[in-house]
Structures are given as structure tokens and as C-alpha cells.
Amino acid sequence: MLSCHQATRLASEAQERPLTFKEKVSLKIHTMMCAGCRNFETSMNTLRKAMQGFASGNYDSPDNKDNDQQ
């Protein structure tokens, strides 16, 4: 059984590489029972999406607001 520390590590590594079958199963079993790690795993996807939005500058920055007032 994985600890939460190990489970979050796998959830993070899943953003870098495909997990092995064994890793996937261990993580799945852990997150089925652990809401904290399940939430952490979901937030990894949110974090990546947020970074993509941030990197493309595709968000409503204070500068945009200035422009809207023109």
C-alpha cells in the first residue's frame, strides 16, 4: 500500500511519463480510498491547464481591463 507521499509522487510523475501498469494500479487503489490524494491527482490536471493558460497569456490581466475601457 502506497503512502500519500508516494501516491502524490506518482500523480506528479504521471505528468511527465506514462505510468507502468503496476504504478497505475497502486495509485488507483490508493486514490479509491484516499480523498486527499484523489483531490491532489485532479488538481494536477487543473494545474497543467492553468499553466497553459498562463503561458499563452490567455487570461484577463489588469492590462486587458485597461484596454476594455478604451
Binding site: 507521499h5 483531490n39 491532489f40 485532479t42 487543473t46 491547464k49 492553468a50 487570461y59 484577463d60
Partner: peptide
């Protein structure tokens, strides 16, 4: 010590992320 979340540090479920992105 066993590598499990401290109760106060356990991640919560986040609200609708796409909705957050729309807020400056």
C-alpha cells in the same frame, strides 16, 4: 512520519477550475 497527509494539509476538492480561469 508514515507519509500520510496531516489532517489540516489534506487536499480538498477544488471548485470548477474552468470557472476560476475566467476570474482575473
Amino acid at each position: 512520519k508514515r507519509g500520510h497527509w496531516n489532517p489540516e494539509d489534506k487536499p480538498n476538492r477544488w471548485g470548477d477550475p474552468e470557472d476560476s480561469f475566467k476570474q482575473q
